[in-house]
C-alpha cells in the first residue's frame, strides 16, 4: 500500500492550520516538520519521556503517540502559545527564575505538563501519592514530583522544577 494522504485541520496556539498529511504522521511531527512549530520536542517518540507534551483540547498528552489524523479539528496549545505577547506565562517566568532547566530540551514539555497538571489538581484529581483519594488536593512537593514524573529531565533539574511549579501553584 502506498502512503495515504488526508486533510486535517488543527487550531494551533490560536491559529487555524489546514494541511494534507500522511496518516502515519504524529501530531508531534505535524507540528515540528510540517507547521514549523518546533517548541514541542522529540525525545523518544514513544511516550517514554514527555518532551513532546502539549495541551490537546486542554489536556496534557504525549503528542508523539497521537496520530494527527485522529485529532482533526482539535485545539492545540504548545509551549509557544502560552506567553501573552512578550509577557511570559507565570510558569515560564518561574522556570527561568528557579533555573528549572539546563539544556532546555525537556522544558517545553515540562511547562505544558505543569499547566495541565495544575488544571488536574484544581479539578481534585488524586495522584499515586495521595493518602486520601477523595480529599481536596494539596500540592506538596511530593505531589508535584509524582504528577510531573512523566517528564524526564536528564540534566537533573528536578530540584529546580518542583519549586518553580510550587511557587505558581500556591
Amino acid at each position: 500500500m502506498d502512503a495515504v494522504e488526508v486533510e486535517v485541520s488543527l487550531r494551533v496556539d490560536g491559529r487555524q492550520r489546514r494541511l494534507t498529511l500522511d496518516t502515519r504522521t504524529s501530531l508531534l511531527d505535524a507540528l515540528r516538520e510540517r507547521l514549523g512549530v518546533t517548541g514541542p520536542k522529540k525525545g523518544c517518540d514513544h511516550g517514554q519521556c514527555g518532551a513532546c507534551t502539549i495541551l490537546l483540547d486542554g489536556r496534557r498528552v504525549n503528542s508523539c503517540l497521537a496520530l494527527a489524523v485522529a485529532h482533526d479539528e482539535a485545539e492545540i496549545t504548545t509551549v509557544e502559545g502560552l506567553a501573552d505577547g512578550d509577557t511570559l506565562h507565570p510558569l515560564q517566568e518561574s522556570f527561568v527564575r528557579h533555573d528549572g532547566f539546563q539544556c532546555g530540551y525537556c522544558t517545553p514539555g515540562q511547562i505544558c505538563s505543569a499547566v495541565g497538571m495544575l488544571t488536574e489538581a484544581e479539578a481534585g484529581w488524586p495522584s499515586a501519592v495521595s493518602a486520601d483519594l477523595t480529599a481536596p488536593v494539596e500540592l506538596t512537593d511530593a505531589e508535584i514530583s509524582e504528577r510531573m514524573s512523566g517528564n524526564l529531565c536528564r540534566c537533573g533539574a528536578y530540584a529546580g522544577i518542583v519549586p518553580a511549579i510550587a511557587e505558581v501553584a500556591r
Partner: peptide, 21 residues
C-alpha cells in the same frame, strides 16, 4: 544571573539542531 538563554528555552523558540528551518 538568570540564564540569558532562558526566555528562548521556556518559550520553545531556542533552535536545536533538527529545528533550523
Amino acid at each position: 544571573l538568570d540564564r540569558l538563554d532562558g526566555p528562548a528555552k521556556v518559550t520553545g523558540t531556542a533552535r536545536y539542531a533538527f529545528e533550523h528551518p
